[in-house]
Simulated scan of single mutants.
Amino acid sequence: MAEKRKINPWLKAALEFGPLLVFFAVFTRMKDAQVMVGGTSYSGFVVATALFIPLMIVTTGLLWRLTGRLAPMQVATLVLVVVFGGLSVWFNDPHFFKMKPTLIYLIFAGLLAVGLLRGKPWLQLVMDETIPMRPEGWLILTKRLIALFLGLAVANELVWRTMSDQAWVNFKTFGLTILMFGFFMAQGPLITRYGLPKDKE
């Protein structure tokens, strides 16, 4: 098993969020543009997606190279970005890429739910080193995270189906990130109640 290595947190954040910010910047600049390639006209959204895919591959590869490992969430996200982003570019249709967050959140909610049904809190296996807690705490946090993922899947569907491309890009870039960050910040009392010392075996 590859040894996990620590890297500068600012570098890690840049590699994780950099592609999304580039996507946002390119789309915002080109949202009203049409780019002709091989006789086909592509919207600014599709062009931004076409740039996002290789950038995501490169930054994820760098994270793996620098840290020695990738979280299952990162691997699944990369696969769906390549598949659904690729479909959007291939068919010149932004809808495929817009559906990607919905599928990601449904997959994660489903995996966590299966873990609970099997009596295996898979969230604990992924995050135990970061947030040591008693089993009761992991059970509660897992149920809350399942509810969050399902809510985000519904929210993504509502936004991309009823709002403009710009609204969806804003929601994808900032809204989802803020909601995830706010969720984990709100779990402070739970972590305090069920937390264990980090050096406890």
Results as ranks from 00 to 15, higher is better:
M1I: 08
E3C: 04
E3D: 14
K4I: 15
K4L: 14
K4H: 10
R5Q: 10
I7E: 11
I7S: 05
I7G: 11
N8S: 14
A13Y: 14
A13F: 15
A14Q: 12
L15A: 07
E16L: 03
E16F: 13
P19C: 01
L21W: 12
A25M: 12
V26T: 08
T28S: 15
R29H: 12
M30H: 06
K31W: 04
K31P: 07
K31D: 13
Q34V: 11
M36W: 08
G38K: 14
G39P: 07
F45Q: 07
V46K: 09
A48T: 02
T49R: 04
A50Y: 01
A50R: 03
A50P: 03
L51I: 15
L51S: 01
F52N: 10
I53N: 01
P54I: 07
P54V: 05
M56K: 12
V58M: 06
V58K: 03
T60A: 01
G61W: 10
G61K: 11
G61Q: 13
L63V: 05
W64S: 02
W64M: 14
R65E: 00
R65V: 11
L66W: 11
G68F: 06
R69E: 14
L70K: 03
A71G: 03
P72S: 09
A76E: 09
T77N: 12
T77Y: 08
V81I: 15
F84D: 02
G85M: 08
G86T: 06
L87S: 05
W90T: 10
P94Q: 13
H95I: 10
H95P: 00
H95Q: 11
F96P: 01
T102F: 05
I104L: 07
L106A: 05
G110C: 07
L112I: 00
L112P: 02
A113L: 09
V114N: 05
G115H: 10
G115W: 04
L116Q: 15
L116I: 12
G119A: 09
W122G: 14
D128V: 10
E129W: 04
P132L: 07
P132V: 05
P132H: 13
P132Q: 13
M133L: 02
M133Q: 02
R134V: 07
P135Y: 04
E136M: 00
G137K: 07
G137D: 04
L139I: 06
T142K: 04
K143L: 12
L145P: 01
L145T: 14
A147G: 05
L148P: 07
L150T: 09
L150S: 14
G151P: 04
L152D: 09
A153M: 08
V154L: 15
N156A: 01
L158T: 02
V159D: 00
W160G: 00
T162R: 15
T162A: 08
M163D: 03
D165W: 04
D165M: 06
W168F: 15
V169T: 11
K172H: 12
T173G: 15
T173K: 13
G175V: 11
G175I: 13
G175W: 06
L176H: 03
T177Q: 12
I178C: 10
L179D: 05
M180S: 06
A186N: 07
A186Y: 09
Q187M: 14
Q187H: 10
G188I: 08
P189H: 11
P189Y: 10
L190R: 02
L196P: 02
L196W: 08
P197I: 01
K198C: 00
K198F: 01
K200A: 14
K200I: 00
E201D: 13
E201N: 01
